[in-house]
């Protein structure tokens, strides 16, 4: 089957020589609910911008359900609906007109557009606002208006750039429910977020992006498991020729005085030391080995904690 999204060796250098994407490759399968997770400035919006042709790529290729965005751009655009990070509708136009016009740009006749506009405005709880100037809507309503607009041509792939930024908790949950539902009905969804919690509760697969590079591309479950483990480096007194074997604690021998042990966060470290002592191994010192992923997550969590206050 064609991937819903295939990105290969994507590079973007902005004017003024800033390299925002450094050779990103990524596949998203049809039907997936996919998170592009990363801190601010990682390159998430740039990636989304290229997918929906608001940003010109420097090199690389992108195809959507097998349609290349350069050579088959008309078809490719029919397949994708985008909800950008910033509001980008005319604040003086009314939600209903905004949807009808967007449908028109996709060549959808007015009668069909009117039916769909009503359907999506109702589903997103905006029907009673459909004929007021959109500048009078609240932030959460504006965001939902953009979701309705992205769906009006019924794309197979829906891309949302930080859809819940600035949306309060209650609305956030109902938006999540809505997204789960349309995903269940077959729409592939990609969303960017800097909330691990959001990716965790919605998505099946995830790519982590940092400084314009994909750091990790895996399933959410796998990712969480990985984050649940800690790696310790132990310096021992004895000269080891064989790696000690202790049940439940995978150990690797780094050199003849150094061990690395994987410990799940739920496991006790006391038990590890007991087992090592009975095996005749004496630990002189121990340190925590952090990898880039963990550092990144530490960052994400830290930033979110401080960021939430000024949201």
């Amino acid at each position: 089957m064609q991937p819903a999204l295939a990105i290969s060796q994507l590079n973007k250098t902005y004017e003024g020589d800033f390299q925002a994407l450094k050779g990103i490759s990524l596949d998203v399968q049809p039907g997936d609910f996919f998170a592009l997770l990363g801190p601010n400035g990682a390159g998430k919006s740039t990636t989304i911008g290229i997918i929906c042709s608001l940003v010109l790529k420097t090199s690389g290729s992108v195809s959507i359900f097998g349609c290349d965005i350069d050579t088959d751009f008309s078809e490719a655009k029919q397949h994708v609906g985008v909800v950008p990070q910033e509001f980008n509708f005319n604040q003086f136009e009314k939600p209903f007109d905004i949807l009808i016009n967007q449908a028109g740009y996709f060549g959808i006749p007015r009668e069909i557009a009117a039916e769909r506009a009503e359907k999506y405005l109702r589903q997103l709880g905006l029907w009673d606002k459909s004929h007021v100037p959109s500048r009078t809507l609240s932030g959460g309503m504006k965001r939902r208006l953009m979701i309705a607009r992205a769906l009006i041509h019924e794309p197979k792939l829906l891309v949302l750039d930080e859809p819940t930024a600035g949306v309060d908790i209650e609305l956030r949950r109902s938006m999540w429910d809505f997204l789960r539902e349309i995903n269940a009905q077959g729409t592939t969804i990609i969303l960017t977020t800097h909330y691990l919690e959001e990716a965790e509760s919605l998505c099946r697969n995830v790519a982590i992006i940092d400084h314009g590079q994909i750091v990790q591309n895996t399933s959410i479950r796998e990712l969480l498991q990985q984050l649940n483990k800690e790696l310790f480096v132990l310096d021992v007194r004895e000269l080891l020729s064989d790696c000690p074997v202790i049940e439940g604690y995978p150990i690797t021998l780094v050199d003849d005085h150094t061990l690395e042990v994987e410990v799940e966060k739920s496991q006790s470290i006391n038990a590890l030391f007991d087992a090592l002592s009975s095996a005749g191994v004496h630990v002189l010192s121990m340190r925590n080995k952090t990898n880039r992923l963990e550092e990144l997550f530490f960052d994400l969590v830290e930033k979110n904690l401080s960021g939430d206050k000024n949201d």
């Binding site: 608001l54 967007q102 060549g107």
Partner: peptide
């Protein structure tokens, strides 16, 4: 207002 993007993302 950036609503030109409505046209730019369309075919």
């Amino acid at each position: 207002q950036r609503n030109i993007e409505e046209l730019l993302v369309s075919p």
